[in-house]
Design a protein around this nucleic acid. Structure first.
Lengths: 275, 275
DNA sequence: CGCTATCCTTCCGCTGAGCGGAAGAGGGTG
DNA sequence: CACCCTCTTCCGCTCAGCGGAAGGATAGCG
């Protein structure tokens, strides 16, 4: 920036990104004042930057004068490696599972200490669930989350176990109990939840491991009850997960995002903040 | 910016967006030098800004040192009004059609003089097609494109008719011939293409009109041949399109993104550069 | 009708954030 | 070892960016 900055040290880029990040699932449209408030930027500054972002197509202005995320960002986001490989490869398999079960199907990866839903298929008659594509939930209360947690590095596990927030009366909030489950998940090869995230919703999930042993994603479905056909569901999921993993080898090499960076770590880059 | 700018008048924001826009379908990963070249920024400048974008999560750095679009942008993009309503509402219907036909299914909107593919379902056994979610193609050579063109404002039609690029030997490049087709599309209620975009691919598409009469999107499928069951396909598509339109009413009010703003057109926006 | 409240937009002078040439650090190749 | 290429860091110059303040615009209230 320049001149009379109220908070020196902040850069134009960080402010611009802050403005964009002010939008979330519950705030898809924001007025200028909201934007300024949420980013803690002076109104005039927010106004100037916002106008420029609109000019560049990163934001759009609705008829009512509110701002929303623009199409340019949408197209750009689609280029992110999150979806490029994994999503494309997995898509047909997700359809197969959906066709066979008519349940909500999830494809997710771990993003720090949260599950990031990369894809989701849901029909009219599927169980209502909170997750949407792009949303992030805690690792300990969902099927795919538990799978990813069970196969996460130790330090991530510790971090996650230290913040077991409660979503329903059935959410597991005791670290020791969850630890036991994680052990079982590793040996059994699948995870389940029973109304731990939302009432009336149970889930089964399995890992997708690309170089065998390295879990890069999780595949899961949400059903009203597990009683009847857990084993059948697990089998179906594992077949699909295997297929996805195998298809990933083909388009391998370039690797599914930073997490899978293997022995070579990223150049330092130091203190990245998450979202 | 500040100081010794080589090209005064450009702003930090525009440079940052330029860096992001350097990525496209054929360039999902770019080295620093590539970025600098594509944006015509001095290397040092590109480096500084890029590093900051990485710090903010807008870009990520791969193990090999290349840059790619980050997860943050991906999540942000998902908030764009492009998909919020329309895509979500349409999703189950797309699945139905896919299940019934196993053909590639497309959901598209018009973005200026191009088709913007908002969603796409394709299986392993579907016809190979060029379009991907997020890609933009000319209006005159695809099924969904023709539908959108037929129902576009006059000035857009003129603009599009003035640039009938050829994709295959079967692409229609004579304005008068296309004009006739557009008339038929309006009366018949559906559009077809026969190998006009890619050889071996035919398509059928129908409009999705929300306040009846106002076309907000198009729904289409791609098949190897139209001979056998065109009427059947048209019927299926029209049922789905009707269903989508009806479901849109429910989530109406807050409006399906700027395009659906009814009689009020978008604020000029005019000379936006595309991606 | 004025008064207050809330939102958006424009103005303008001060200044440090941003600029980018240049030099340095790897790494790969012949 | 010289050459080429890409990435990274340095640093002094300077104008792009900053944001308080003033000026509409619209809405609701008494």
């Amino acid at each position: 920036m320049a001149g009379n900055t109220s908070r020196p040290g902040t850069t134009v880029v960080s402010r611009a990104v802050a403005l964009l990040s002010a939008f979330d699932e519950d705030h898809r449209r924001l007025s200028l004042t909201d934007l300024a408030r949420r980013t803690e930027l002076p109104l005039a500054t927010a106004h100037r930057l916002t106008r420029e972002l609109v000019r560049e197509g990163a934001l759009v202005r609705t008829a009512s004068g509110e701002y929303a995320v623009g199409r340019k960002l949408w197209s750009l986001g689609l280029l992110a490696p999150v979806q490029t490989d994994l999503r494309q490869v997995a898509s047909p398999f997700l359809h197969d599972i959906y066709g066979a079960t008519l349940a909500t199907v999830h494809l997710a990866v771990r993003d720090g200490t949260r599950v990031l839903y990369v894809d989701r298929l849901a029909g009219n008659r599927s169980v209502r669930v909170v997750s949407e594509v792009g949303s992030r939930l805690p690792l300990h209360a969902t099927g795919v989350g538990k799978v990813l947690l069970a196969h996460a590095p130790i330090d991530v596990q510790e971090l996650a176990l230290a913040q077991l927030t409660r979503a329903t009366p059935y959410t597991i909030t005791q670290p020791t109990r969850l630890r036991e489950q994680l052990d079982r998940i590793r040996t059994d090869g699948y995870a389940t939840t029973v109304e731990e995230m939302s009432l009336g919703a149970c889930s089964v999930a399995v890992p997708i491991a690309q170089p065998p042993g390295v879990v890069v994603a999780a595949l899961g479905i949400v059903v009203p009850s597990l009683r009847r056909d857990k084993t059948r569901l697990v089998a179906a999921l594992q077949v699909a997960a295997g297929g996805i993993a195998r298809s990933l080898v083909a388009s391998a090499s370039m690797a599914a995002g930073p997490d899978a960076a293997g022995p070579h770590r990223l150049p330092p880059l130091s203190d990245e903040r998450s979202l």
